[in-house]
């Protein structure tokens, strides 16, 4: 299956269709307080993110822990408010969270969370949890709903005998399959997955990855797939966006980006991926303090840890600009890409 990948910014070819999901200049600021009487310190968790996802396309999002991936994922669905910027779904700005229009839209855009235990209701059996969205959005009659629940459970690898169990009676991986089945219940057109297979063992992970790929092929499901597992992202995504401290620092077709990362952070990320047979010492372990979103470094946010940083990196923030066909990066030295290879 070939997909209409990201609009080629360098050539400005006309796109086939408007993107299903479009975010423009999203900013999310959390206020945290220092001590009991301290001044609130603004934390720019997401700092001006723009992205597009076409129907049937999967955008992978990877990046440093705390870089704002989960926050961004929630903003894309309107669950988390944005201080600046706009999200458009099928061409129209998202209705305000909590309104009936927004609730109705949620049948089409679903989320799979990072922590299955927090996402599930401890008092409901897993069959009831999977059926819940069908009830809320009034899909089918009782028998049809029951059949759909059985179908979903089988699709995600849960046994029929587990239907009456409660979340705490399942293992961690089994719980996440319940969450995925529930998200797929209404046949959404967009799925925002936040670390959906992180809690799963490799075999079920392979099943779920294949399942998500199948859903996409069959229904034109679009996905935003947040994960720290680059191998899974590479297998599933068409494009990938790499985040660092609230911003996208690199973006492009997933195979190209992972085969030849341009931004120094992406280079460190790709070199850190553990693989059987690859020793710890062969990795490029990042030095220096992990970034603090409450005190962004001046210039390029990555410069204090960047092995290539030059004077301009400390002074001026690099913009996310086209670097190659379908690729963008935010680094003074890229584009310019061959200088980094030296």
């Amino acid at each position: 299956m070939t997909l209409d990948v990201m609009p080629d910014v360098t050539r400005d070819t006309p796109r086939k269709a408007a993107p299903l999901l479009e975010a423009d200049g999203l900013v999310r600021i959390y206020e945290t307080r220092k001590g009991l009487f301290g001044q609130p310190v603004p934390v720019r968790a997401v700092n001006g993110v723009s992205l597009k996802v076409a129907q049937g396309e999967t955008l992978g999002i990877v990046g440093e822990s705390g870089s704002g991936k989960s926050t961004l994922g929630r903003m894309l669905l309107g669950v988390d408010p944005s201080q600046e910027g706009v999200v458009r779904f099928a061409g129209a700005p998202l209705p305000a969270a909590g309104t009936p229009a927004w609730r109705a839209l949620r049948a089409h855009m679903q989320m799979v969370h990072q922590d299955p235990l927090a996402a599930l209701d401890k008092r409901l059996t897993i069959a009831d949890q999977i059926r819940e969205p069908l009830d809320i959005h009034a899909r089918g009659n009782r028998a049809e709903r029951r059949a759909r629940v059985a179908e979903l459970m089988q699709a995600v690898g849960l046994r029929p005998d587990q239907a009456g169990r409660y979340p705490h009676e399942l293992s961690g991986g089994q719980r996440q399959r319940v969450v995925i089945a529930r998200a797929l219940a209404c046949g959404p057109s967009l799925l925002v997955c936040d670390e959906p297979v992180s809690a799963l063992d490799v075999s079920i992970q392979a099943q779920v990855v294949n399942l998500l790929a199948d859903m996409q092929a069959a229904n034109g499901l679009a996905m935003v797939f947040i994960s720290h597992d680059l191998k899974v992202v590479r297998n599933l995504a068409d494009r990938v966006a790499v985040m660092y401290l609230g911003e996208i620092v690199e973006e492009g077709p997933v195979e190209a980006v992972f085969a030849a990362p341009q931004h120094p952070y992406t280079q460190a990320l790709v070199s850190s991926v553990p693989a059987p047979g690859k020793r710890l010492d062969g990795r490029m372990i990042l030095k220096g303090e992990p970034p603090n979103p409450a005190a962004r470094p001046a210039g390029c946010a990555f410069h204090p840890r960047c092995p290539h940083a030059v004077a301009s990196c400390r002074a001026e923030a690099p913009a996310l600009v086209p670097t190659a066909a379908g690729r963008r990066a935010a680094c003074h030295l890229v584009g310019g890409a061959d200088r980094l290879a030296a």
Partner: peptide, 28 residues
């Protein structure tokens, strides 16, 4: 061996993953 075969990879062609067929048995 099945666990290894199910792993995606960061290099090489992107192929459909190969999970171990079937599911874990019911402890009962």
């Amino acid at each position: 061996r099945g666990l290894f075969d199910a792993l995606p990879s960061l290099t090489g062609p992107r192929t459909r993953l190969s999970p171990i067929p079937g599911t874990v048995p019911d402890p009962r």
